[in-house]
Amino acid sequence: MSVLKSYIQIKKRNASISWKIAKKSKTYYLFLAPYATLFFLFYVVPVVVSVFLSFTYYNVLEPAEFIGFQNYINLILADDVFLIAVKNTFLIAVITGPIGYLAAFLFAWFINELPRYLKAFAVVIFYAPTISGQVYLIWSIIFSGDAYGYINAFLLNLGIINEPVLWLTNPQYMLTVVIIVTLWMSLGTGFLAFVAGLQGIDQSQYEAGYIDGIKNRWQELWYITLPNMKPMLLFGAVMTITQSFGVADVPMALTGFPSTDYATQTVVTHLIDYGSVRFEMGYAAAIATILFITMILCNKVIQAFLRRVGT
């Protein structure tokens, strides 16, 4: 009993201490208040409502009906397409996530070594796939299944193939095509954040490095650049996770929706299928919640890993 009592007492004291600090930090709360208000209203509330909906049957027209864990049970035990989607999503995420992340950093770092005007030019070129909006649609022309597709025309001309390959409708190739295009687009948010981050490193640290005998660019990278970039690396990692687990636009635009044999169904296209085609919002919300939890776990692992950088 006394243990519990002292525990409560400590908690009470802690609470009163933090209350005192909170009163002192009034200015800080004022700074945060506009963002916090809007964030709770437009981001937290909808997410909470969605998680709640995942325990209901909700078809948008009738009021939501509480059904407990039924959506989750159906999802895992009865939905074969969901398992395909999970497999595809993991495959896409495992390949495009790490490669895209490393490429974004390496290119940002390489470009940072260039002289100034060339640097600006190179950043524009490498960010082009992202800035030009829906321009990835040109890949549907490049990989087009008839002889008009660039790749088919090229291979036919060389005589490597005798008839056009159905890149976007033959399940054998579809996922590969999606992975290639996703990789091509992966130098997005993270890349620009890295470019900005590299710009913010105090140059005098490098000069100190030369004097302290840093021999080559790799040592400089590990001992000076990476430790300085830690916050940006973390940002890039989170953005990479959200992007690589959230792949949906590319497969939908290139291979159709739904795709042949669900060969490029991802978790998010599955979600869109239930959410905006079949209007089973409860089920769609359950898919979103599972994806959400997976991403959070993945984020935890990567954060632990990034903590060891530069040590």
Binding site: Y43, P46, S50, V60, M239, V268, L271, I287, L291, F292
Partner: peptide, 12 residues
């Protein structure tokens, strides 16, 4: 909050 799919929050 970054990790929650925007497609689902559309209706709320």
């Amino acid at each position: 909050a970054l990790m929650f799919s925007g497609y689902v929050t559309a209706i709320p």
